[in-house]
């Protein structure tokens, strides 16, 4: 795991910021020796990774390699699956998120998530976006809520398409619009990290392009982690790429370096299409 440039015995907290070739970005998420089990299946083996702020990090790998599973450990969505067990340490801004005192509800407000299939609630567009701010009490009155919703929809790059029908059901939008609505819904709670689990797999190429453009913009404010099947997409939107294979993190580094000059032969096989 040399390519990850992580020394296992680095002290986790106040780890000195690593100088990468690109810039000096702050470390947002630090994972150390993460193991995930589904019942008896060892789904994630020994993964350690640092995820930077204001960066798009792509997780790639063949299906079943554990990239989605690992993504879901980052906001403890795995808690909703009874048989799932997580070991190791994952911290965000130095806080261990698997600490007993951590409330997953607070964590998920901080680490938003966008799913593979667009999943708008069967409510109006407005209520979809306002749902998060409402439950977290982000707005004191209607005017503030309106403002949050508008801002989120603008950030989701869908405001212009829906501003005249905010009270129409969210399920009535097209697939691409629904996914952007879901992204708007996720950013409305002001998260710091945005997890995206194959957000474009259910979309057509035009909608995909729109969402990819949006992801690039979101990088300004968030640390974005995206799981994707498509290597082209990873190359287009991400700055950092992690390649997973059979539950192992094989290689982690600059996207340009992974795609042009991979260190591990498995990575090379994958990006040249020999495994996958």
């Amino acid at each position: 795991m040399d390519a990850t440039n992580i020394k296992r015995d680095d002290p986790m907290y106040d780890a000195p910021l690593r100088k990468t070739e690109l810039d000096v970005q702050q470390n947002k998420i630090a994972a150390r020796d993460v193991q995930v089990y589904y019942g008896d299946t060892h789904a994630i083996k020994d993964v350690s990774v640092d995820i930077l702020d204001k960066t798009v990090t792509a997780f790639i790998g063949p299906s079943g390699c554990g990239k989605s599973t690992f993504l879901r450990t980052l906001n403890r969505m795995n808690d909703t699956i009874d048989i799932c067990r997580v070991e190791g340490q994952i911290s965000i801004d130095g806080d261990d998120i698997y600490d007993k005192r951590v409330d997953p509800v607070q964590l998920r407000a901080k680490v938003g998530m966008v799913f593979q299939k667009p999943n708008p609630f069967p409510k109006s567009i407005y209520d979809n976006v306002a749902y998060g701010p409402r439950i977290h009490g982000l707005a004191r009155n209607k005017a503030e809520l309106d403002e949050i919703v508008e801002k989120a929809l603008r950030r989701g790059a869908i405001w212009n398409e829906v501003k005249d029908r905010l009270h129409a059901p969210g399920t009535g939008l097209s697939g691409g619009q629904q996914q952007r609505l879901c992204i708007a819904r996720a950013v409305a709670t002001e998260p710091e990290v945005l997890l995206m689990d194959e957000p474009c797999s259910a979309l057509d190429p035009i909608a995909t392009a729109q969402v990819e453009e949006l992801i690039d913009e979101l990088r300004q404010d968030y640390s974005v982690v995206i799981v994707t099947h498509s290597m082209q997409q990873a190359a287009r939107v991400s700055q950092k790429t992690a390649f997973f294979h059979l539950g192992n993190l094989v290689e982690y580094g600059e996207t340009s370096q992974i795609f042009t000059n991979p260190v591990d032969p498995r990575t090379e096989s994958y990006i040249t299409g020999r495994i996958g």
Partner: peptide, 15 residues
């Protein structure tokens, strides 16, 4: 009710 709706809500930090 599809699991994806639950995931969407939990993903936003709802209890």
């Amino acid at each position: 009710v599809p699991q994806s709706l639950r995931d969407g809500s939990y993903g936003l930090g709802a209890t």
